[in-house]
Design a protein around this nucleic acid. Structure first.
Lengths: 131, 131
DNA sequence: CTAGTTGCAAAGAGTTTGCATGGCG
DNA sequence: CGCCATGCAAACTCTTTGCAACTAG
């Protein structure tokens, strides 16, 4: 898709991969990278490019209208389902076993094929529950 | 929250409950109810009211940026997880057994508490898979 | 060099809001 | 009749796009 590795794209990829467990909005990225000379249009354009390339993916916060992006390169992310904590916003990876159990159960009883790439389970993580 | 049952609100509730298995956008509702004299502002205002009252809920289409609403009144909807077909857009209710298994499994192994109200599993339903 | 990428500013799309009018109870 | 809800249009926010200038390869 993209042919050049510009400094803007490099900065975005670096920031996104350094915060791979967080959901980031275009606005957050813009201000985080303001110092490195990345305009808001570059943010938007690169976000769509990176999404098409499969390096990041779009995630929607359950209750809200906001759109976030998250780094998801690598095989691990494509193998398991994701859990998103509604309090701290962090992303957790569901263990393979659980994911497979769920998927098979659904395939049999409800005859529904889960799309792992797009499914996110919302809830409260261990740590936030303790607070 | 709301004090009066206006004809606009009545029309919206009727339409939403008659299409409880579909995800509806503000725009869809506006055009569906255009004949009944419901302005776009009334659509938006009533959607937020109804959401606060728990009669409908917001659902985000996984890949897209669009926002949908769906009728969810009634006990059944609060008891089970929801499946959304990415092809036909229909909503299915996951059987209780499966839901409980998943939830307990997560509670034990990953120590994550699922928020049933906000979680939607995406995939392809039985009928669409056959096509 | 030369085509892809950026920044800016303007255009769009979707949603919210102020205010006068209308209608539910 | 009084207050809430509606309609309209303007205001906002978020995102996309056209175009000239810039830059990676």
């Amino acid at each position: 898709m993209s042919k050049y590795m510009t400094k803007q794209r490099k900065a975005m990829l670096a920031y996104l991969s350094a915060h791979a467990d967080e959901k980031l909005s275009a606005k957050q990225l813009e201000s985080a990278l303001a110092g490195e000379g990345v305009s808001i249009s570059a943010v938007y354009r690169n976000l769509s490019e990176l999404e098409k390339e499969g390096k990041i993916r779009r995630v929607n916060q359950s209750g809200s209208r906001e759109v976030f992006y998250q780094y998801t390169d690598g095989a691990h992310c494509k193998e398991c389902l994701h859990l998103s904590c509604e309090k701290c916003g962090k992303t957790y990876h569901m263990n393979m076993q659980g994911a497979e159990m769920l998927i098979q159960n659904l395939a049999q009883s409800d005859e529904f094929t889960i799309d792992k790439a797009n499914t996110v389970l919302y809830g409260i993580c261990k740590q936030c529950r303790k607070l």
